[in-house]
Write a protein that binds this DNA or RNA. Sequence first.
DNA 1: TATTAAAGTTCCTAATTTTGTACTTTATAG
DNA 2: CTATAAAGTACAAAATTAGGAACTTTAATA
Lengths: 116, 116
Amino acid sequence: MQLSHLSPAALAEELGQRLKQARLNANITQAELAKRAGVSRKIVLSAEKGQVQLENFAALLLALGLAEQLNNFIPKPQISPIQLQKLQGKKRERASGRRASSSQPSGKTDEGEPSW
Amino acid sequence: MQLSHLSPAALAEELGQRLKQARLNANITQAELAKRAGVSRKIVLSAEKGQVQLENFAALLLALGLAEQLNNFIPKPQISPIQLQKLQGKKRERASGRRASSSQPSGKTDEGEPSW
DNA sequence: TATTAAAGTTCCTAATTTTGTACTTTATAG
DNA sequence: CTATAAAGTACAAAATTAGGAACTTTAATA
């Protein structure tokens, strides 16, 4: 499945469905999960539709024992190669962006180096 | 890092920080990311603190090209072994829970089979 | 097929988030 | 060190979500 081709809403919904499947695999009810996660049943209900606050979603993942898997998702931030190059000592805390050196206020603002 | 030992709030916050690091690695500003994702800059700001609606978080992931990685996180739901056993034909849409067969309305409600 | 508990819907209120603009602080290029 | 743009804060209004209880629908067991 191509998650990257989905709309934000569709992607959130997909995540909700996967959460639901995980709950069913564990064979626990929405009410039980809600209790374990310390949230209302309504949260579980809407979370499975993809409409939740990240923190509540996190609570549900924890309650289902799925938290560790998040490491595979967004791995602990690594300094990108491009940065390693530029940065001498300290780590970046802001995006760079070219200076208004003198003239040529070209249209494009970014898109210099692709991500990582 | 032991994500499973964190509180829901702390876990959400950790995810926000990782999102931020990913943005910095791509070297784009909050404003740029907001524009690309079609959300307000404030969303980016609070998302990096872990306070966002899942859908907005999804929008940011998409804008950063991190969506595919979600497959590693909550993999496409698989039917659990326990289910494969029980289910003959159709797939489960509700958690089971024992019936009130006759008497013994014991205290415990679930916790029969551990997850998967 | 009948029973019954899980899941989904509804309503109103309370709480929180999101928007948008403006201003302050601060990292970083030069 | 200085200039400047990125990041963070603040505030009021608008929008959305969350809480809680009650009620309806429906999957799954026996």
